[in-house]
Simulated assay, not measured.
Amino acid sequence: MTGNQMEALIGMLVTFGLLVLMVLPSVIGIVHDKRVDRQLRRAQEDRSEGKEAREPQKSSSRSTVPSTATWYAEGRRSKKLVNS
């Protein structure tokens, strides 16, 4: 191998190395996103299977009345709106 051939080989290897360094983060990101998508899909499937197995929730026949704290907070909110 002559000096020119050796220099060309080193140049090609450096160029290839830089290309790999520039592409590697994108490839890692794509692989990570695919893994997260698979996990989300699996969790969604598990959740939908769980809903089918559960009995429907029974609703109460009593009407719901806001608590004292809710009434107090409503009054405070309306006063702030009027004052400003």
Rank of each mutant, 00 (worst) to 15 (best):
M1Y: 03
G3W: 02
N4F: 10
Q5C: 03
M6Q: 12
M6D: 04
E7C: 07
E7I: 12
A8C: 01
A8W: 06
L9M: 13
L9V: 11
I10L: 04
I10P: 00
G11H: 11
M12P: 01
M12V: 05
L13G: 02
L13R: 02
V14F: 08
T15I: 08
T15L: 14
T15W: 13
L19N: 08
L21R: 11
L21Q: 11
M22F: 15
M22C: 11
V23T: 06
V23W: 01
L24R: 08
L24G: 04
P25L: 09
P25V: 10
S26C: 06
V27G: 04
I28Q: 11
G29E: 08
G29P: 00
V31C: 06
H32L: 12
H32E: 13
V36W: 02
D37I: 02
D37E: 14
D37L: 05
D37Y: 02
R38Y: 11
Q39D: 12
Q39P: 05
Q39C: 07
L40C: 03
R41G: 10
R42W: 14
A43P: 01
Q44P: 04
E45I: 08
E45D: 11
D46C: 05
R47K: 13
S48E: 15
S48I: 13
E49M: 14
E52V: 15
A53L: 09
A53P: 00
R54I: 06
R54Q: 06
E55R: 05
P56F: 00
Q57K: 14
S60Y: 12
S61N: 08
R62D: 14
R62I: 04
R62V: 07
R62L: 08
T64P: 08
T64H: 14
T64A: 14
T64E: 15
T64Y: 15
S67H: 01
A69W: 01
A69K: 01
T70R: 12
T70I: 13
Y72M: 05
Y72K: 06
E74R: 09
E74G: 03
E74M: 08
G75C: 00
G75V: 00
R76C: 03
R76Y: 03
R76F: 07
R77C: 02
R77A: 11
S78Y: 06
S78E: 14
S78I: 15
K79C: 03
K79S: 06
K79I: 13
K80A: 12
N83I: 12
N83D: 15
S84W: 14
